[in-house]
Design a binder for these strands. Structure first.
Lengths: 204, 204
DNA sequence: GTCGCGAACCGATACGGATCGTGTCGCAAT
DNA sequence: ATTGCGACACGATCCGTATCGGTTCGCGAC
């Protein structure tokens, strides 16, 4: 049972760690995660393969780690800004901030990680924990406030509302491949909020 | 320039083709597309690797071909059934038919193909042409009819409405991994149609 | 305090195994 | 006689593990 001893984090070499993360992220952006290999990462970082295998379970985990770390730094710089009071405007700001400014041009890395996570449950779980959950929690809070204000129906599950928005963005990214820019984000939020109802509604 | 001559389809061996398609689809369902290899397909089909490479450019293309062919057969058997007149009911029927009955338990194959298509533009394009576009065209027709009847606002782009529905299903399949059954499909359609508006609306 | 020593990380290299995509046979069908 | 076919061999790449000296860290003896 005790064959795999956990390595000691205290003895970890920060230089090697940083070099590996940088090499992994750079290569993923240059040639795509699919063509990245652990051998390649180790070679580019000037590091033994063993050192990579010691601290990460797969190439996907390395790239996710590097990428998420970069996003977190960027997000900490923004965070608590959104407070215009208008629900739709706030939502647009939050989503644009996350999807355009923070994710931005690393969107192909995001796509690669989702792709890789289709056959790597551990990576999938780490991805949700590291990216999806924090991003959702932020938006969910704002939606709950809108429900308290009566701007959103009380029987809506905030997380379903978030799905309604982000699903559209991911769908474009992963499946249909249309433009995915600022204008599209606004359209996505508007459509999610407005629904498909005709403007004139004669209830029973 | 003329190094790669296209093979002559007339001389293609139907037995070999069928055996390859069957082997590819079976293996994809059993062990997942990621662990499928062209070597494995050829071995299982009792065929030389060269024969596979002659007719398909990648393992993803083989599996997509086999899978889409099966779906098309199944869809031809259903097609023109939906005509209850009620827009929401029709939409639920159509989507359940496609997502639950037709795709059904081959959903992991779908996920694998989308994953693979992230780093294979040709596969991505073939996937949209073979699956997304036909499915969308069917639903778009029904939405346009609903617009003519006044059940859907006239300024809605039918294809955006479809995205609003299918995006949710794909998002669950590829990213967040919740239940993706009949009940969820109904919820998805309802939420898409209803939007986030509060029930009471005092327009200006 | 400082010295010694074992444990763990480090870079480097080698290894067997798997799969890739191509090349090359002889055979069968047209 | 041309072409698809099954079969097999090939060089290349990457995987995950092992092994080798080296260095750095923690800790107890002196």
């Amino acid at each position: 049972m005790s064959t795999t001893r956990a390595p000691d984090p205290a003895r970890r070499n920060p230089q090697a760690t940083a070099a590996i993360l940088k090499a992994a992220l750079d290569m993923a952006r240059e040639i795509g995660l699919a063509r990245v290999s652990i051998e390649g990462i180790a070679a580019r970082a000037g590091v033994g393969k063993r050192t990579v295998y010691r601290w990460w379970p797969s190439k996907g985990a390395v790239v996710l780690d590097a990428w998420a770390q970069q996003l977190e730094e960027q997000l900490h710089r923004r965070l608590e800004t959104v407070q215009t009071g208008d629900f739709e405007a706030d939502l647009k700001l939050m989503v644009k901030d996350a999807w355009i400014d923070t994710i931005g041009d690393t969107r192909s890395v995001l796509a690669s990680i989702v792709a890789e996570s289709q056959h790597d449950p551990d990576l999938a779980s780490e991805f949700r924990k590291r990216l999806i959950d924090p991003a959702s929690a932020l938006v969910a809070e704002r939606i709950r406030r809108a429900q308290a204000d009566g701007q959103v129906a009380a029987d809506i599950d905030p997380y379903r509302a978030i799905e309604l928005i982000y699903a559209q963005l991911y769908y474009r990214l992963l499946v249909v491949r249309g433009p995915n820019d600022e204008a599209y984000v606004e359209d996505v939020v508007e459509l999610a909020i407005r629904g498909l109802r005709p403007p004139r509604q004669d209830a029973t």
